[in-house]
Amino acid sequence: MTLGFYPGCSLKGSSREYAESVLAVAKAFDIQIQEIKDWNCCGATAAHSLNRELSLALPARVLSLAEKQGLTEIVVPCAACYGRLSSTQYELAKNPELKARVAEINGIEYNGTTTILNVIQMLDKYVTPKLEGRVVKPFEHKVACYYGCYLVRPHEVLNFDRVEEPQSMDSLMTKVGATPIDWAFKTECCGASLSISRTSSVGKLSGKIVGDAFDRGAEAIIVACPMCQSNLDMRRKEINEYLGKKIDIPVLYVTQALGLAIGLDRKSLGLQRHFVKVTV
């Protein structure tokens, strides 16, 4: 089977290891991944806080391209991209005039028929059913599953998992042998793009997340968003300064943890690219 793939900017840059691990896991389970050709930026944050039409036209173009290239189902690993694409599909489905206007701006037909999957949905749909017998190195660690904001919100649009106390990643991690902890910061803000403009704020916000996970005995934090991962990983210096501690628990993508459990090569999962050394 073939699944369309929208990497977005992060998976081509700062979060290459996310793309590598998604592709490695897909390969291991015989899922053909086909990157959408000529894709563009989803417009996250910048576009949707400035210009409504632009914020819809950008993701709509990506979806139009997928339709044109015969990709009925696409996986969008970045939580922000996933949110923008899903919101666009939701809004245009409700408003035919806007839908026509967006198609006119883009100059491509838009039908809104593409099924959009985030990484957890992809794993649940195509990997979990075949997981039995494949776990050769159970990921036997206490893990803190961190969902962040975009993966589960807004519920009205995404209709995915529970908003306040999501469970999907926890149940997935249980299946590969991990023990998810019960903690309070699953959906708290990591500071997102303030990482660049106000790094100290990210140190504080992400610090609370990492601190709580560590205090409750987590040996790794599991994420499914490149922004979350880079803040919790790359800003560890600021985090540790804020906490006044030296916390070195790694931050893994859900696909990396799963890849380890099914015995994939560490390098194929991009584990060497992290700032906080992955020792688990």
């Binding site: 529970r162 908003v163 306040e164 106390e165 019960d182 309070a184």
Partner: peptide
């Protein structure tokens, strides 16, 4: 009834 308050755990 309240996930944000720990499901009453």
């Amino acid at each position: 009834f309240f996930p944000e308050y720990g499901y009453g755990k």
